[in-house]
Structures are given as structure tokens and as C-alpha cells.
Simulated assay, not measured.
Amino acid sequence: MEIEDEVHRTYRGHHQSGWVRPTRTWLDAACPVYVDFGEDFLIKLETYDESGLPCVRRVAKRKFVHDVMVETRADAITMRFYRLPPSSI
């Protein structure tokens, strides 16, 4: 239980990834890269902590659209965690 509790406490949505043929321009991009596979979420390419381990994080499309409209810096999109107002859709 101790490990499970630690995982739940520190989990931020990162998942390890390993592509056989990664798209080099995505990995070398100087701005955040999001991939849309047609689901209700996007996949954000990230690096896990100072280890440099490639990973991905699922981001709800609704959160992404909200942040794009309110954030002033691209690197701030999807990085703050707060409740979104109810959807008017």
C-alpha cells in the first residue's frame, strides 16, 4: 500500500513513451507539441524531470482550449491545475 499511496500522491499524468521512429521535428521543437488522435484528449510530448526520460501526458481538449484563450505564454498552457467553469456547450 505504501508504494500505491506514493503513486497516487505524486501522479501528474505522465506516461513513459518510446517511439520506434519518432518525428525528429517534434522532439526538437522549441515550443510545446500536442498530438491529436481524435479522442477527447490530446497527447503532449514532454520530458520527465531532470532525467530526460521522454514521456507523454494526456490533456483534455477542453482544458487545452480554455488555456489557449487565457494564458499569455505557450509554455503555460495545460501547466496550471484548477477547476474549469461548467461548459456552456
Rank of each mutant, 00 (worst) to 15 (best):
H15M: 07
D36H: 03
D28Q: 11
W19P: 02
D49A: 15
T72C: 13
R24L: 15
M69D: 13
L45C: 01
Y82F: 13
M79G: 13
W19Q: 11
F37S: 13
E6S: 14
D5S: 08
L84R: 03
G52L: 06
D49K: 14
P85N: 03
Q16N: 10
P32Q: 00
V70A: 04
R21W: 06
T25N: 12
P22K: 01
R57N: 02
R57G: 02
W26D: 11
Y48C: 03
R12I: 08
S51R: 06
F41E: 09
G13T: 00
P32W: 00
K44T: 01
H14A: 10
I77S: 00
E71W: 04
C31S: 14
P85I: 02
T47N: 04
K44F: 03
T72V: 12
E50F: 12
L27E: 05
V33E: 00
D49N: 15
Y82T: 05
G38R: 10
E2Y: 06
G18C: 10
R80H: 14
R83Y: 14
W26L: 12
D28C: 08
D75V: 05
E50W: 14
R83H: 14
W26M: 11
W26P: 03
G13P: 00
G52I: 04
V33L: 00
V35Q: 04
R21S: 11
L42F: 07
H14N: 12
Q16C: 11
D36G: 03
V59Q: 03
S17Y: 09
E4H: 11
P85D: 01
V68P: 05
R58N: 07
W19E: 15
E50Y: 11
Y48Q: 07
E4G: 10
Y11E: 10
Q16H: 15
H66G: 03
G13H: 00
A74E: 15
T23G: 07
T25A: 15
P22N: 01
A30H: 08
M69I: 13
R9V: 07
V33P: 00
R83T: 12
P86N: 03
D5M: 07
S51L: 06
D67F: 03
E71T: 11
P22Q: 02
A60W: 09
H15G: 02
W26G: 04
G52R: 07
H66L: 05
K61F: 08
P54D: 05
F81V: 15
S17W: 06
R73Y: 10
P54V: 05
R12W: 05
E71L: 12
L45Q: 01
D40Y: 14
G13E: 00
R24M: 14
F64S: 04
E71S: 11
